[in-house]
Amino acid sequence: MTTDTEHSLGEAVAQRIERRWATLSIVIVGLLVGMAAYIGIHQATMPQGRVETADPRTLHISGEFIESNLGSAVEADGSVTVRAIGQQYSFTPQCVVVPAETPITFRATSADVVHGFLIEGTNINTMLVPGYVSELPVRFKASGEHVMPCQEFCGIGHQGMWGKVKVVDKAAFLNMAAAKRRLTCVD
């Protein structure tokens, strides 16, 4: 009888410790999720809110991704919009020029298969899925050059798909923009 009581006593202790750990685990997970929610709500970084489409068969004929519209453009409010296309196995423009310390919106899509790009040394990272438009707000702190590889397998030439981003001084950028509607590095 005594051993029985000891046994059930031990079981009660075991269950109490276990419950404490389970509670602690729930608190840890809750804290992590809460942090992500807080950052998301305060718009520090959020995924794009809505789904936009673009037909890769007609990209070159009409719409915002026609060749003459690709590159960096200064908007009326002083922000900059960069439009780009990924295709096997390059970006257009292959070298993007942007001003430092300026709100920039990247709008990009794919002309064939799934691509993506990340800009090394920054948190800029997105997929390019044919049929859909990727949009992301970015801001570069300092001028300099970054490589911009395609980060998704897109065929046997994938390893050669490296673009470039040149961040220039804001005044220099506006000077260039005064002469031309859409900018790339080669202008």
């Binding site: 992500a36 995924p47 794009q48 899509t109 859909y132």
Partner: peptide
């Protein structure tokens, strides 16, 4: 990082991913 799913469902799935750590 995909453009074909909106922010709301990305957040939902992020929360559930936290739960699976449990």
């Amino acid at each position: 990082a995909d453009p074909q799913v909106g922010a709301g469902f990305k957040f939902m799935h992020s929360v559930f991913t936290g739960l699976v750590a449990l």
